[in-house]
Simulated assay, not measured.
Amino acid sequence: MKVKIKSFMTIATWHWITKDDYCGICRMAFESSCPECSLPGDDCPLVWGVCSHCFHMHCIVTWLNLQPLSQQCPMCRQSWKFNIQ
């Protein structure tokens, strides 16, 4: 007896590994996208600061552009520096 597969459907899930569940700026879940993006993922990555706080990339860039003189983390008010590993 042979079995022929006519169609095959898969389902996958993903999630960011962070200690918080929500962006501290837009208050949207990290599994969703920021208000600027229509879909989560590569176009809306998460970025971490040296202070260990995490935000949507678009949210923190907008936040920093609104305060050009004192670029601080919106959560702890430390000077914002991107954590590049």
Rank of each mutant, 00 (worst) to 15 (best):
H58E: 15
T18G: 07
Y22Q: 05
F30Y: 00
P68C: 00
H53E: 02
S33E: 11
C23L: 04
I25R: 09
C23Q: 07
A12H: 14
D42F: 05
K19G: 06
H15A: 11
S38K: 08
D20L: 14
D20Y: 15
I60E: 06
H15T: 08
H56D: 02
D21E: 12
D20R: 14
I17V: 14
S52H: 03
C59D: 09
V50C: 07
D21W: 15
W14K: 13
C54F: 02
V61K: 00
W63P: 10
C59K: 02
G49P: 04
H15C: 07
I60P: 00
L39D: 15
M57N: 12
M57V: 14
L69G: 15
P68A: 01
T62C: 03
F30C: 00
V47E: 03
T62Q: 00
S38P: 08
S70W: 13
N65R: 07
I25V: 06
P40I: 03
V50M: 04
I60T: 12
S33K: 00
A29G: 13
T13Y: 15
C37N: 01
G41V: 01
E36W: 02
V61G: 02
Q67G: 14
S52E: 08
C59I: 00
W14N: 13
V61N: 05
L69W: 09
P68K: 02
P35Q: 01
P40A: 03
H15D: 15
C26P: 08
P45K: 00
I25F: 04
W14A: 14
E31V: 01
V50Y: 08
Q67F: 14
T62Y: 03
C37D: 05
S32A: 15
S33L: 08
C23Y: 02
W63K: 06
D21C: 14
W63M: 12
Y22F: 01
S38Y: 07
G24A: 03
L66C: 11
A12C: 10
S52T: 08
L46D: 09
L39M: 14
C37S: 04
T18E: 13
D20S: 15
E36L: 04
C26N: 05
I25D: 01
S32L: 07
S70V: 09
C23N: 05
F30H: 03
T62A: 10
Y22D: 06
V61H: 04
S33N: 01
L39R: 12
V47P: 00
F30W: 03
Y22S: 04
E36G: 12
S33A: 10
W63L: 09
I17P: 08
K19V: 14
N65A: 15
V47I: 01
S38A: 12
C44T: 04
P68V: 02
M28H: 10
H53S: 03
D21I: 04
T62G: 09
D20V: 14
H58R: 12
H58N: 10
L64C: 11
L46P: 12
H56Q: 00
D42T: 09
D42M: 10
C59L: 01
C44I: 05
T18Y: 06
I25T: 11
C59G: 08
C51T: 14
C26M: 06
